Simulated assay, not measured.
Amino acid sequence: MKLAVFGATGGTGQEIVRQALADGHDVVAAVRAPGRLAVSHPRLDIAPVPDVTDVARVREVVDGRDAVLSALGTTNKSAGIVAPAARAVAEAMSTAGVRRLLIVSAVPVGPMAAGESLAYRAVLHPIVSRAFRAVYRDLAEMERVITASGLDWTVVRPPRLLDKPLNHRYERVIGANVPGGRSLARADLAHAMLAMLDDEETVRRPVGVAAAS
């Protein structure tokens, strides 16, 4: 496939780029600072995108691609950029005729998984939700933008992300979060997203992914 990757210089984004190239895909990586992408390959093109809300520039990146993957993230300090970026990506994809989109969100944006422990429901989840309120508000708005776009989207909701090697030991739940899922290697998140590219079951569905317990 011909893929476009946004957030390609982040931890998850770089994993997506590396694994996609290893799987034989052609990749264009949208980046603000090209020097931060520590990947080179004959099938990799690097596309400088100083402003990811610039619809015209984003369309140039996604034009002719089979699918788009976004690993754009934020912090409390920079919260408020992910939803506008998603809006620009969705508009650019629609006008370019590109339909498949996989985008990273987070566990707290989705409903509580069935079977969660009392300690998680009463203590941990409320603490995390309050501490990163601005981030999850931004991601929730991003999800609203994407689900209303008419694209063939998949929203992927991982828990806390770790910089660990790929080990293929993760669980996924279509339409819900993974019960008891507390962490996930960025490499496994990238693997899960690439595996969903042509998985019809995940189209227009949220998918929870977490390390296997």
Rank of each mutant, 00 (worst) to 15 (best):
Y136S: 07
L162F: 09
V62F: 05
E171V: 13
V109H: 06
V107L: 15
E60N: 10
T9L: 09
F132P: 06
R144L: 06
A134H: 08
M1A: 15
V28E: 05
P126S: 13
P34L: 11
H41W: 05
R18T: 15
T74R: 09
M1H: 15
A122Q: 12
A190P: 12
D188P: 07
V178K: 02
R59A: 12
G73C: 03
G97M: 06
M93A: 03
A71W: 02
V135C: 10
A22W: 01
I103C: 12
M1L: 12
P34A: 13
V128F: 13
E171L: 14
V104P: 10
A106Q: 03
I16H: 03
L184F: 09
S40P: 02
A96T: 04
L72V: 12
A83W: 01
I16R: 08
I46N: 10
G180L: 12
E171K: 15
A38Q: 13
V109P: 08
D23V: 05
A114K: 15
H25C: 05
M193G: 07
A131S: 14
P126C: 14
V55H: 00
A195G: 15
M196L: 15
Y136P: 04
G35M: 12
V209L: 05
Y136V: 10
A92L: 04
P165R: 10
R57T: 14
V17G: 12
G64S: 11
I16T: 10
A212D: 12
M196Q: 08
A71S: 15
A33F: 10
V89S: 00
G11E: 13
L166V: 09
G97F: 00
G64D: 06
A119N: 10
E143S: 03
M93R: 02
E141I: 01
A148F: 02
S129W: 03
V128T: 14
R32S: 04
A56D: 14
L37F: 01
V156T: 12
A71M: 02
H125Y: 07
S94F: 00
G97E: 05
R157W: 08
Q19D: 15
G24I: 09
A192K: 08
V128C: 11
V104Q: 06
T75I: 11
G80I: 02
G180K: 07
A67H: 05
V178E: 04
Y136C: 09
A148I: 02
